[in-house]
Design a protein around this nucleic acid. Structure first.
Lengths: 215, 215, 215, 215
DNA sequence: AATGAATGAGTCTTCATTCAT
DNA sequence: AATGAATGAAGACTCATTCAT
């Protein structure tokens, strides 16, 4: 299995070159704004070659986003593995997430383009990868609860809360504030871990303390 | 004040009709994917009329996002005014935010398109409105701190943290989970208010309790 | 007869205002490049009014060129009348012609536009006026021949030769040389009157002297 | 040197076909009146191909006028080379000029369009070619003066006078008279060479004979 | 396998003309 | 009579995709 094109013999270097320039173009110009010719030019190959490696512009886009996803997953996983404890792992992953996008702003744009252009219509393959990432994080939370480090939260919801917070932080926070995504992410994840209510307030309203979600 | 076209006499109904169909089209097809002809057709006017009311497709887009922003601002403000106390106001606004986008999913798409297509290049007017919204929220936090309901957080950062969380929740959470944006938002904002750490954990690590942000 | 629109009551001042701005617009932007709205704006009337006074953009253009023609005819006629003798009249008319276009470069552009946009498809009315002008000039030449001031040239051809020379001078000469149209016209008409051959050359080749046109 | 598109490999036949149909379309419909689609259709290529060979409609137009200019230059140069003597060369070139436009009336229209649409805004390249043509003609006049065939005229002005006369003849004369451009040109150039004043008149007014140009 | 020339459907925008007020 | 809002046909230019070399 050499790639999406089955038995075709491919040059991995060429494939990677195309992918790298795709990130640049899609990030800078958007999916619709990108001319496949430009990707070919920047990658130093003919336009026909781009179509040989990726069947269509859309396929190329999905391959691009998947590539970015993998890189993101890698850095967050590695960050987690370097520390112990649920909070530490969450913080480390959050930091790595923000650092990745701050170091690779083009990757952020690609993510945003994906959501904007294709809503939730990602290929099944992409969803699979996403679910795996979620599951991995849920385990971290579960471990934290088991060890008494975290209170007994709904891990499914909380993973998504953290994901939402981080996504919002890099997308929304990063460009509307004068603070760097990393600074914002640090602050946000810590605040998320601790909450913003005062001790007195928490002590007074026990129903909140239990983290119940009914209304 | 007749609109962006100065002294031109305009039919407000027609303007509104164009704007409404713009939301639909931009949301369903994206900015680039939308043909102005389609907006005109759906609004029941000639294409030339669209260009009379809005000078270009881009202007129309900005008018559309501003319209959505106003509606969003209105519901969150009204929600805040109906309750007392910082936490209650924050929760109410967050709920209203999520409810708005759940009831008007097209508006959410428009927001996403804005970010995707134009990065941070919103017109000055839009930035102004944004700043006002932020300032209003900061005051709520400030009041909460003054009254002892909230601990002494950095209001600027925290407002953005909440904004990021909510944005992430409706954009990211809403489409990757099987939970509704409203459910997610409720959970996330409560979690954010309370934090996810256990009492024991908090008691043990006092430096976190103070909300310090150093690394 | 109030104008091309028969019995309609018209305001001559308004009509003239439209005509004047038409010259400016057609000259600066060309026939196709001119937006009727701009003429209306500059003339301080509504676009509908332009169409009331002139039935179409093309009609307005013809009215504009006719207006220019009349002004040109007027100055050349008056120049002729101020002097006596064929050569003097020809020179005076030529000078007036060049002066007119140098003082009113917009009028020149209108003439050029007419030729470019409509080839020889001028309305009959325009042709009539043209013929009258030609006839008038032929008479001047005829008188010059009768008085012995001019040799016995073909007046029809020669009138057109002069017309061609002057037209070419203001159109071609005026914009390709660093000399003013007036200077060029003076030089050209004098050269045309005298010829460029040396006396000796003329004396030697008598067949040329007779101005025969056979070949 | 492949053309204006640098290293693009081009089919000269296709390029020529487009150019030929451009002449037809621009001549028949004017620059603004021509739809590039029509040129493509007539040339039997896709519209995209037209834009591959010429970057824009305007570029195509300039390439068209330059093509015409070269053809005109070629016939006039060849005509001059076939004869000896200044008068003969001038007559030959004038005849060739008129013959060219009579045989290729579309080329004339293209020249007229150029002047009408772009005033003097021709690309530098075009101006260069023009200057070369002028210089060549000036040399002919200079030689004629040196040999005693012509009187001592200002060669710069006189070249432009001849150019103006010929331009006027084919543009103005050709369409306002029932005579052919060739007939008109023959007559006009001979008249220009000889002048139209009688011998007696010339003998009487010596100041004219010297060709002085002051008023 | 690699290329890039060719294509034509698709899109934004303009503007002459009409007609209701 | 005067206006200018509304219209939609028209036209320049782009670009994803194909396919002959």
């Amino acid at each position: 299995m050499a790639g999406p094109n089955g038995s075709l013999s491919e040059d991995p270097g060429k494939r990677q070159a195309i992918l790298e320039q795709s990130i640049r173009c899609f990030a800078e110009l958007g999916f619709r704004g990108t001319d496949v010719q430009q990707i070919a030019d920047r990658a130093g190959v003919g336009k026909g070659t781009v179509y040989r490696y990726f069947h269509s512009k859309e396929d190329l886009f999905w391959a691009t986003t998947l590539d970015v996803f993998w890189r993101l997953e890698k850095v967050t996983n590695e960050a987690q593995e370097r520390v112990e404890g649920a909070c530490a792992k969450i913080r480390a992953a959050a930091l790595a997430y923000a650092e990745f996008f701050e170091s690779n702003p083009l990757c952020l744009e690609v993510f945003i383009q994906e959501r904007a252009e294709f809503r939730g219509d990602a290929p099944e393959l992409h969803r699979e990868y996403h679910k795996k990432l979620i599951a991995r994080f849920e385990q971290v939370l579960q471990d934290g609860i088991a060890s008494g480090e975290l209170r007994s939260v709904d891990t499914y919801k909380t993973v998504h809360a953290i994901g939402s917070l981080l996504y919002g932080t890099v997308v929304f926070g990063g460009h509307l504030t004068e603070l760097s995504p990393i600074e914002m992410a640090k602050h946000n994840i810590d605040t998320f871990l601790r909450g913003i209510r005062s001790k007195e307030s928490l002590a007074a309203e026990t129903e909140f303390v239990t983290g119940s979600r009914e209304q």
